[in-house]
Computed example of a mutant assay.
Amino acid sequence: MAVWGCGSVVVWECGGSDSIKVLEIQVPPRVPTGETVRLGCLYDLEGANLYSLTWWRGTEQFYQFSPSSQEQMTVYDSPGITVDRNRSSRDEVVLRNVSHASAGRYKCEVLADFPSYEKDSQITSMEVIGELLYCVISKKKTMDKSPLAFEYCDSPRLMGVRTG
């Protein structure tokens, strides 16, 4: 099983400003059904402490990390979202077995602790497409006399290529 994502996530802590900021949200734009996905959120707390980092799909919260809480990680039920608790943390959330119900607009929201309780967020979309489909490459000639032709490929699906 492939793991789809955008690489490791780093938490930046720099001085110089008085406002927290989400620098980048890392969500793969297109993934096939059944895959594992890593969601990342790069942020700058500007010297503040983190109160919570939350993930939303649409208007539904599905994950919260609160470092000062006894139970640091909270996972909420949300159709199409299966959080891998063992691989999720402050830095990333791992979703298992994504389906078409997992598609949508994802938001990472960061909230600073007392005294400011400032927050910032970014939103991006993830599309979930049909199963990873391998196309058969035929050696017969096509109408344009090309020696190779793609067969059995469905254009809305993510296509890999395997010679055969």
Rank of each mutant, 00 (worst) to 15 (best):
N49F: 04
D154M: 08
T82G: 00
L45K: 02
C41S: 07
S52K: 10
S68H: 12
T163M: 13
G7Q: 12
S116Y: 09
E127S: 10
R87A: 09
S8W: 14
E151I: 10
C153N: 03
C41D: 00
S99W: 14
C14N: 11
L39D: 04
D144A: 05
Y43N: 02
S116T: 15
S66K: 12
E92R: 15
V94K: 12
G104V: 11
M126T: 05
T54W: 13
C14G: 13
Y134L: 09
V83N: 10
Y152V: 09
L133C: 10
A101K: 15
V83Q: 02
F62Y: 13
M143P: 04
G40Y: 03
G7F: 15
D154C: 12
A103G: 03
R57A: 08
V75D: 02
L53Y: 14
W55N: 05
R90E: 11
M73P: 00
D144E: 06
K145I: 05
S78V: 15
I20E: 01
S99E: 05
I20R: 04
E24F: 08
A149I: 06
Y117F: 15
S155I: 05
P79Y: 07
A149E: 08
R38I: 11
Q26F: 10
A48H: 07
Y51M: 02
V93C: 06
W55T: 11
S138V: 00
T82F: 06
L111E: 04
L95I: 03
L23M: 08
A112L: 05
N49A: 07
S155E: 12
E13T: 08
F62K: 12
A103E: 10
T82P: 01
S89D: 08
L148K: 13
V75H: 02
F150V: 01
S69I: 01
I81C: 00
G160T: 04
E24M: 05
R85D: 02
V98Y: 09
C14K: 14
C41W: 09
P28R: 14
S66A: 11
F114E: 02
N86H: 13
E60H: 06
W56N: 05
F65D: 01
V161H: 07
M126W: 00
K107Q: 11
D154P: 05
L148R: 10
L158R: 13
V75M: 10
S102P: 08
K145T: 04
V11E: 12
P32N: 02
T74G: 00
S146F: 09
C108D: 02
